[in-house]
Design a protein around this nucleic acid. Structure first.
Lengths: 158, 158
DNA sequence: CAATAGTGATTGAAACCTCAACAGAGCGTA
DNA sequence: TACGCTCTGTTGAGGTTTCAATCACTATTG
């Protein structure tokens, strides 16, 4: 990247207020969710792993597939899954169809933990976000975040 | 907290789609911003420290005040500021009016770094969020996140 | 004016994440 | 078959964050 001088297109006052609300609001959401999940010895990243496994056939997913779904680096997922395996939440097995692959599968204990935590988690999501936001704004929020998530990846050729 | 059984108020299908878009979208935003700031040896947390100091009289703020503004724990701020001080970005001085306090103040180098990074940062914010979201949705997003940020702290008496 | 409680900031250890390097398996092609 | 390339997943080192404990100073109380 050439760090040539660029002409800054600064945010106007309203945009800046919105942007800072975004920083504060998202921070609040994740803090509260983590705090609630901590009661179950989980954080949001681990909870998402549980959810994605629980929604898959045999409660099982390839590591790389799981990594994509929970938006974690493979390395991070390996570490996290290793800790979860040590806690008995899931197990890893060689993937039968691809010698390189590894499947992570929920144990009964892991599934039970999810079942236990989920009601409290969804209650947190409501309390901190869904219930405090105007329904129309909530829908708009969804459109906005979907647009962000689905936007083309930035070209690396800058 | 009593972990008495609660009746889950599950999210409906649309709410769930929105919630997952929120997780994906916010993740995308923060990943891109960190990637851009990395060119300057910063992450978003450090950048926010720079911004808040730069907007304060004498480019100086009490540690606790700064911690509140950037929504970091005091411990985390101490560590982060320590590293930034080692890099020459800011300095710490005893607070003259309160023997317990410590002021963090931007150095000229630190301010110069902010001036250098800011245009690229704002460009990232536009590229990943402002420019890809419908303007009306962006305003709604601001209302939603402000509502989240300003909502009463949850009662600890549950 | 002590004694006590409260506030501001730091510390160090443990937990966690990132990054680059690596090993093993599959794929393509000659 | 053999070679190189890609893909999957792991590893370990180093850096960062969290958590609980601590120290120093201020405020409050009797």
């Amino acid at each position: 990247m050439q760090r040539t001088a660029i002409t800054p297109r600064w945010l106007d006052a309203e945009q800046q207020v919105i942007w800072r609300a975004f920083l504060s609001g998202t921070n609040r959401v994740f803090l509260e969710l983590d705090a609630e999940l901590r009661r179950f010895g989980l954080d949001l990243g681990e909870y998402e792993i549980l959810v994605n496994l629980s929604e898959s056939p045999d409660h099982e997913l390839r590591m790389s597939d799981l990594a994509d779904r929970v938006r974690q680096s493979r390395s991070r997922l390996t570490h996290t899954v290793g800790r979860m395996e040590a806690k008995g939440i899931l197990v890893r097995n060689a993937c039968p169809s691809d010698g390189r692959g590894v499947n992570a599968r929920l144990t009964d204990e892991g599934y039970a933990l999810l079942v236990e935590a989920a009601p409290y988690h969804v209650e947190s999501v409501r309390r901190v976000l869904v219930d405090v936001v105007d329904p129309d704004d909530f829908v708009a929020l969804g459109r906005a975040m979907a647009a962000v998530a689905d936007a083309d990846a930035p070209t690396e050729a800058d």
